[in-house]
Design a protein around this nucleic acid. Structure first.
Length: 970
DNA sequence: CTGCTACATTATACTTTGTGCATG
DNA sequence: TCATGCACTTTGTATAATGTAGCA
């Protein structure tokens, strides 16, 4: 019984916690709408993340400790250490963040941590219910210390877990955490993008770039109508002069890194792209820095099996994410032999890639290309373990995170080469039998055991056009997220199209206007285009639509759009402020309706059949309209918005059926759920595997009569039921077959087109029209009968009753209590004309009630003081009578009281009885006389001295001497 | 490698309008 | 005899969503 209660409370706590977090998220979202500053968004996002991380780490540590069964003292110590390990804002401060700016979050985090700690306690207890098994384990370990030497059970357990419970599904908490990580990572990447963008505006860097530029290329800034073609000379010059470097970032500020890159004319892809942006800006071209935000997955564990890989590529800081892998300078001095080794590999990669072979381009020093081709597995392994970027990143990690392993990492080059050879020999002989073993063996041999590199087959790129020839990506490591184009520039070319256009310029790869190729190139490198953000003027704009043709694939991988839009809203303004304005030179007069017309005709979809998407045009329309007032000048920003929206609405039909399941634009009937129907059924936009494809806007949601009632809608008379057959999977019944709920268990459902506004009977003669249960269902204000009002006040019913005004209880919803759903009533519904009367009477009543309540409480307080004092007096008397030789303590008490009575206010610090007496005499004016006046007398209970306790129905009678007697009223 | 199906598991939405007993 | 207050007790089902395995 006790256990059940406990678990219940813990469950409540847990759910309370969840709801708190959720509420906080909601709050944060709503606050964006109100204030909408990025700083707040960031603070809240990061704050929540920290809270979660801290909570997790603490709970995990506790769980671990419990499982091991450490003694309490040890527990305490480890707990303390864990706290120290946590991420705190002081850490953040140490990195230069202003505490003032973060003050709110800091408080929030601290509070959150406190709360989480408390809750974690609960969770721990709760968990212990489930983790009883750990105790015997600990015991057995203690009793049989030799057992862990033998390690008998490990293999058995592992095999079991593989066969029986292969994977534990991600819990709601994991998902929430993943989402928080995703959000925080997004914010970080946004911040990084802004940082780079601002550095691109640096006049010194721009001037330096200009000084390097041949004078004939400077003319471009004088071109009035810039076209993509006009950019090609400058892009090819840049491509010839600046190269992607394959070495470690120096981890200085980005500004100095960029300056260094400029000086050495080589840098990370990020730096090279930034330099190109700076150059274009120096030439007075409107330019954005564009980046794929390669953010941590929104789904928990989604990248579990490639995590090490991904991480390594990330930790590498994009060093090897080079769109082109260019020859590194051999004189590059590197700290660790591993690095230099990696760098050698890099060279090989570069050489082969420059030869243009789309297949396995990597070759180890001792193997050639043909070998690799012939033996895919050897290639596999080598690409898995010898991949320069990975091993480089690994060494980075091991250096950064595992100082212990640094000594291991400092192996001689010869040793490493030996390991590689051994590894390849093993892979060549034991391919089929035990891949995993080889892997682990090799892993052990390899110093980089901290990061497990997954074995992946080398990916063949089916079309060279898509990746290698377009973007010059080395596909040698194509099976992992390496080599994807992550950074480029967008230059606004006013001479393109009718209205001007943002042109994709990847200067590092000498690619201009290759926006269609980005998706394929990224896909080849396992990078999805979830977020592509263009930065300018310290702002940012999501331009994913321009590059992503298969939106339905990335849509589920993106964070909820409301949050993302709220985050970007302030940044968008900054961005459009920096790029959207029109210079005098390129000012064009654009007829807004022409633009819309052009967009409409270019759209092969029926815009009219997308009523709900028209709103997407809304903003643009408005912008165009408003600017139309300013002599029809459409700004770049709204034009781009329109372009992006047009893309959103003209997505090609997916070829697989499942893509239609949650597709924003299209639908096929088979994926409709029970409460959905196509109405009107058409137009058919195409077919997919024989299924007709309809616009998503044709999907109508069906509800029951009762559900519609909540939205103040009622079913029109003589409407037939359109759909209720879905539950019978595919069978279509005749509509007129249905009653309320027919024999087949079908439910009556109606669509919006079958409804009309709710018409309830009006209140007549002060009588409130009620439903069949004598009440009014108040789902919203709209559900009130005309002429009535809802008074949501406690105890108002009695007021209406007293005034003999007709009123009906207002039911506002249901709740589950005692295992069944029960209606929840709140206030009453009365005719509007009585509202004021009732409110006045209610106010009066409440005043009276409050006064009575106050009186009652005072009386109760008085009574309790009386009781207290009386009991003391009684005790004293008993002591006096029967306890002559009683303890000194009681007599001293007596002395104290006596003293107090004679010297009120003097020596008040000595005893506690003074104030009660004072209160007594002051407030009640009953003048309880000194109980010590007479020792013996007959008690007299005066009526004015007695008090009545309503709660207990107890009357307390008092004598002047202080003696009280309680009489229970019957 | 991708798409599809089947199956298993988990999450979520929907459901929805008391009764019997003690006491005053 | 009637009005009032309190305890009782922790739904249950259907469906959507998600994940996985196996196959083509």
């Amino acid at each position: 019984m006790r256990t059940r209660q406990d678990s219940k409370t813990q469950k409540d706590q847990a759910s309370g916690k969840e709801s708190t977090v959720r509420g906080a998220l909601r709050d944060s979202e709503s606050s964006h709408n109100e204030t909408g500053t990025l700083a707040e968004t960031s603070r809240e996002g990061v704050g929540k993340f920290l809270r979660r991380v801290n909570a997790r780490s603490s709970s995990r540590s506790k769980k671990q400790d419990c499982a091991v069964g450490l003694p309490t003292s040890v527990l305490k110590v480890s707990g303390k250490q864990e706290v120290d390990k946590r991420v705190t804002w002081s850490d953040v401060d140490a990195h230069g963040c202003s505490r003032d700016a973060m003050g709110n979050t800091l408080r929030e985090v601290d509070e959150g941590r406190l709360q989480d700690n408390v809750l974690d306690g609960g969770e721990e207890m709760y968990d212990s219910d489930w983790e009883d098994g750990s105790i015997p384990v600990a015991c057995s370990k203690e009793n049989h210390p030799e057992s862990d030497i033998k390690g008998v059970t490990i293999e058995f357990d592992a095999a079991d877990s593989v066969t029986k419970k292969p994977v534990r599904r991600a819990s709601a908490e994991d998902k929430e955490l993943a989402e928080l990580v995703h959000k925080v990572h997004l914010l970080c990447l946004l911040a990084r993008g802004r940082l780079i963008d601002s550095v691109c505006d640096d006049p010194l860097i721009q001037a330096s770039l200009l000084s390097l530029l041949p004078s004939y290329l400077l003319k471009i800034s004088e071109v009035s109508k810039l076209t993509a073609n006009a950019l090609s000379p400058i892009v090819s010059w840049f491509h010839d002069n600046f190269h992607v470097r394959s070495s470690v970032s120096t981890r200085r500020s980005f500004h100095s890194d960029l300056a260094h890159a400029l000086e050495s004319r080589e840098g990370t892809p990020e730096e090279i792209a930034a330099l190109s942006v700076a150059l274009f800006r120096a030439l007075k071209l409107t330019t954005r820095f564009v980046s794929i935000l390669d953010v941590a997955s929104l789904k928990p564990e989604a990248d579990k099996n490639v995590s090490s890989n991904q991480d390594s590529s990330r930790v590498g800081g994009g060093i090897f994410n080079a769109p082109t892998l260019m020859v590194a300078k051999p004189e590059e001095v590197l700290a660790s032999p591993v690095k230099s080794f990696s760098c050698d590999k890099k060279e090989n990669v570069c050489e082969t890639s420059s030869k243009g072979s789309p297949e396995c381009k990597y070759s180890s020093p001792k193997s050639n290309n043909t070998q690799s081709k012939k033996s895919p597995v050897s290639c596999e392994l080598s690409s898995g373990n010898l991949d320069p970027s990975s091993s480089m990143a690994c060494s980075d990690i091991s250096e950064a995170c595992h100082p212990k392993e640094k000594s291991q990492a400092l192996k001689r080059k010869g040793d490493l080469e030996f390991e590689m050879q051994l590894e390849m020999a093993l892979s060549a002989t034991n391919v089929a039998t035990s891949k995993s073993n080889i892997c682990s063996d090799v892993k052990d041999l390899n110093s980089n055991s901290s990061t497990v590199l997954p074995v992946k087959r080398l990916k063949k790129i089916e079309s060279g056009e898509s990746s290698t020839s377009c973007l010059g990506i080395s596909t040698a490591v194509g099976s992992r997220k390496v080599g994807a184009p992550l950074y480029w520039a967008e230059v606004y070319c006013s001479g393109e199209n009718l209205t001007g256009k943002w042109v994709h310029v990847d200067a590092a790869n000498a690619i201009i206007d290759g926006e269609q190729k980005v998706e394929a190139a990224a896909a080849a490198c396992k990078t999805s285009l979830r977020y592509i953000v263009a930065f300018a003027g310290c702002g940012a704009k999501d331009v994913t639509r321009r590059y992503c043709m298969k939106w339905y694939r990335i849509a589920p991988k993106r964070v909820n759009s409301a949050w993302w839009d709220a985050v970007l809203a302030p940044l968008r303004e900054l961005e459009s402020g920096a790029t959207g304005g029109m210079t005098q030179m390129e000012k064009r007069h654009v007829n807004a309706s022409n633009i819309l017309e052009a967009l409409k005709t270019s759209n092969y979809l029926y815009r009219d059949s997308f009523p709900n998407h028209v709103s997407l045009y809304g903003d643009s329309d408005l912008n165009v309209e408003s600017s139309a007032k300013d002599s029809f000048v459409a700004d770049r920003n709204s034009l781009e918005d329109m372009e992006l929206e047009t893309r959103a609405l003209t997505e090609p039909l997916p070829t697989n059926q499942q893509a239609y399941k949650n597709h924003q634009l299209y639908v096929i009937e088979r994926w409709l759920n029970k409460y959905q129907i196509l109405y009107p059924k058409g137009p058919i936009l195409g077919f997919c595997s024989g299924h007709a494809v309809y616009p998503r806007s044709c999907v109508q949601t069906l509800k029951t009569k009762e559900r519609w009632l909540r939205e103040a809608l009622q079913v029109k008379a003589n409407e037939v039921i359109k759909n209720s057959s879905k539950s019978k999977k595919g069978q279509d019944f005749e509509p007129e077959d249905y009653d309320e709920v027919d024999a087949r268990g079908n439910i009556e459902l109606y669509g919006k087109w079958q409804l009309e506004p709710l018409r309830l009977p009006s209140a007549v003669n002060g009588i409130v029209p009620r439903n069949e249960r004598g009440q009014v269902d108040v789902w919203s204000e709209k559900c009130l009968p005309p002429g009535t009002v809802h008074l949501r006040l406690p105890r108002v019913y009695s007021v209406a009753k007293r005034l003999e005004i007709d009123s009906a209880p207002a039911m506002v919803g249901f709740e589950f209590r005692n295992g069944r759903s029960t209606p929840v009533f709140d206030g009453i519904v009365v005719c509007a004309e009585f509202k004021d009367t009732i409110l006045e009477a209610y106010a009066e009543e409440e005043e009276k009630r409050e006064a009575e309540e106050k009186k009652r409480r005072e009386a109760q307080a008085t009574s309790r003081w009386y009781q207290l004092l009386s009991s003391i007096v009684t005790r004293q008397r008993l002591n006096n009578c029967y306890g002559n030789n009683s303890t000194s303590q009681s007599s001293s008490n007596f002395q104290n009281v006596k003293k107090t009575n004679s010297n009120v206010g003097v020596d008040s610090s000595q005893n506690d009885w003074q104030s009660p007496n004072q209160v007594d005499r002051g407030d009640t004016k009953l003048h309880a006389p000194s109980p010590f006046q007479s020792e013996e007398h007959e008690h007299v209970y005066l009526i004015e001295d007695q008090s009545f306790d309503e709660e207990n129905s107890v009357t307390t009678k008092r004598c002047h001497c202080g003696f009280t007697i309680q009489v229970e009223e019957l």
